[in-house]
Design a binder for these strands. Structure first.
Lengths: 398, 398
DNA sequence: GATATTAAATCAAATAAATTGACTAATTAA
DNA sequence: TTAATTAGTCAATTTATTTGATTTAATATC
């Protein structure tokens, strides 16, 4: 916090800023990078040289705009680096190997039944080691392994999994030194985050938040999670529970399936609640993918649930709007994309109904680009983000 | 955003970091600063030399801890710099000259009646120029003039006052180039912010948030405002309305004084509403100071209003808690301190009632140290913050 | 009480990254 | 054909931090 800086950190930061400029604005020339970053052409030239040496970028076509020598465009090298992302949850495990552009090279998916920690460690490390065997370009850099955990679990400063909100849902998951256990079986650097925060980083790096420094990300998965992105990085809060909107209290609960003494939105907004809701009407469904057909057929029970969910989401989004004044809300998660699209389409009108009429500006609600694998892609982004993101903290010594 | 950095910015930042370390942790020695900041002792020595030359700090007592040469303690020089803060609102104008430690040297207070822009400009500039005439140490630096405006008014990128939320309350205050107008009459750099954000910066720099990088500040003044402090700076949001909690919609309004079509918390939570509430019962009160006596006498009507206000605040604070996971909420504003203390004491219990029971950690609710002049002190902090704060943005070229 | 040890602070020289200035090459405008 | 403009890079310069050595002042230990 009270850390100084020096030339070495300056160098590291400028390296990242040039990379970031190519990543976000490429194809782009050295001269244009210099103008964008306020660095001198010479500095940019030197950094670009290093980036090419490390195979992180490539020279592309030459392009002349007006007069003068034509500039050589620079682009990211998709094969410059790879990373592995694991989305682990109570009902499933998704593992994927992705390249520097976020393209999925290889993917595994398993259904699981709320495994205990030691079983989870085995599953995760096996998947990681399987993914590591995939043939990739010998020259390219392996960034590391990212793992996303379900919302109620969070990671303390000793890299142990702890249960700050809902210990009952994960009975054996308290004070588990997950990284230490995994590190015994995985020979790469490991990064952990909860699924919503990881997915938010994924959208920030590869997806709908690519050119957005501040946004609220809502993750509709096994529960309702969220990621608060401020100034280009995920804000996690004092106890790493920022964005854990599932436990947002809802004073006038109307859901017939409420079981808690203090009704909260995540109680309604979770997949098993939706399955129960449908089961009562005789519709037997177990997987998110099955919902797509049901939705496209115009199932009434499903629409009812969606309508209810929207009324639950409205006050949450409004409070976020007044507290943080975001101009963008990104929706994502494991529901089928058509349903998420439905939410994105209907929410703005619902919001404006409960909003003070004089207010002229409203945030836009958009659908995340990562799809149902957002958490796994987000997990894969963690090591890449750590290595290449141009966050200002990079400049601090500590 | 995509800006690089260089040696000059490194120097400027390290200068600020050393100053900040002395400000927050002083009395402190050069060697201890080096340890805290990870700067080398030589670098710290050089920067301290410059700080002393600029009279921003002073050498204090020598202190030996264990063996070795005794270290010389360094402290802030209160007379090192001065600044002026103006809190302008519909009903009053407070102006103050403060020193580098936030001590009020001179103060003016006027009651006003919703003046139009040209009249406000006259009032503000007159007050500033009166405060400038106060005799201060010739050597000390004058940091500038900070001005806080009421919440619904905000400032666009051209330094014009605009009305983003509630234009009706300030009929002539739209597209007013306030800084340009003031600059014609004031020969110093001018900084503008809404009162809640300014007060939040005041608490961050001088007050209860001094050692807190992330907190929510609630400002109970003519309306309900707020400041969201993240990573040591106020987050203002896309339209500079972050923290404008007054327009937070309240679905089940119970207030008999509601007039809006969409009930919102600020409608209840404002001073004139409180006055009306009391007036109905025959209690004629016009000024915040008069409330103190009433409260100490245990007035029933007042307690009723306070109780109602607490039920309004609870969901707002809870949503902030789940969205941002702050561990600190600071309360401030123009209500008498005893009443604010009452809120700080009662809110934690009310919050825990509506909170999911498994959650173990809760934010602490504390009273701001600046008192009813928080907005004016916050305004005075703006130029000082701009000149001396060690925010990471300082490192960026743009 | 003399000497070794530890620590603070600073002087002087070295280091390392960005900057500045000069230059080459490539293209278009006139 | 020539002048103007722009991209890009080599070489030298600049400048804040770092490194290493030195001085000073206190305590610990024999």
């Amino acid at each position: 916090m009270l850390s100084g800086t020096n030339l070495k950190y300056t160098k590291a930061f400028n390296f990242r800023i040039v990379f970031e400029t190519i990543r976000l604005l490429g194809p782009i020339s050295r001269a244009d990078i210099a103008r964008k970053t306020n660095l001198t052409p010479q500095t940019v030239s030197n950094i670009v040289h290093r980036l090419i040496q490390k195979s992180l970028i490539l020279s592309a076509d030459k392009l002349q705009k007006r007069r003068g020598a034509p500039s050589t465009n620079l682009i990211l090298n998709p094969n410059g680096a790879y990373s592995i992302g694991i989305d682990f949850n109570r009902d499933h495990l998704t593992g994927m190997l992705v390249d520097l552009e976020g393209k999925v090279i290889s993917k595994y998916f398993y259904e699981v039944d709320n495994p205990e920690p030691y079983r989870a460690v085995q599953l995760i490390s096996d998947t990681v080691n399987l993914l590591k065997e995939v043939q990739i370009d010998q020259k390219s850099y392996f960034a590391g392994v990212g793992i996303s955990l379900p919302g109620p679990l969070s990671i303390n400063e000793n890299n142990e999994v702890i249960n700050t909100i809902n210990p009952k849902a994960f009975p054996n998951w308290h004070n588990v030194p997950i990284v230490a256990l995994l590190q015994q079986k995985i020979d790469s650097s490991i990064f952990l985050k909860n699924n919503a925060s990881a997915a938010a980083i994924g959208e920030l790096w590869y997806g709908a938040g690519k050119n957005q420094n501040d946004f609220l990300y809502l993750f509709m998965g096994a529960g309702l999670g969220g990621g608060v992105v401020i100034a280009g990085s995920v804000f996690e809060g004092a106890n790493r529970n920022a964005g854990e909107l599932g436990y947002f209290p809802f004073i006038n609960d109307v859901s017939p399936l409420s079981t808690s003494d203090v009704p909260h939105i995540g109680e309604h907004f979770n997949l098993s609640n939706l399955y129960s809701w449908l089961n009562i009407s005789g519709i037997m469904i177990k997987r998110p993918e099955d919902l797509e057909n049901l939705y496209l057929k115009g199932n009434k029970k499903l629409s009812e649930w969606i309508d209810l969910a929207k009324t639950y989401l409205t006050p949450v989004l409004l409070s976020a709007e007044y507290l943080l004044d975001f101009d963008t809300v990104i929706l994502g998660g494991r529901l089928p994309e058509v349903i998420i699209k439905h939410f994105a389409l209907d929410l703005p009108d619902l919001l404006s109904k409960d909003r003070v009429d004089m207010k002229s500006v409203a945030p836009k609600v958009i659908v995340g680009t990562a799809g149902p694998d957002a958490a796994a892609l987000g997990a894969a982004t963690l090591p890449v983000f750590d290595l290449f993101s141009a966050q200002k903290d990079i400049l601090l010594k500590n």
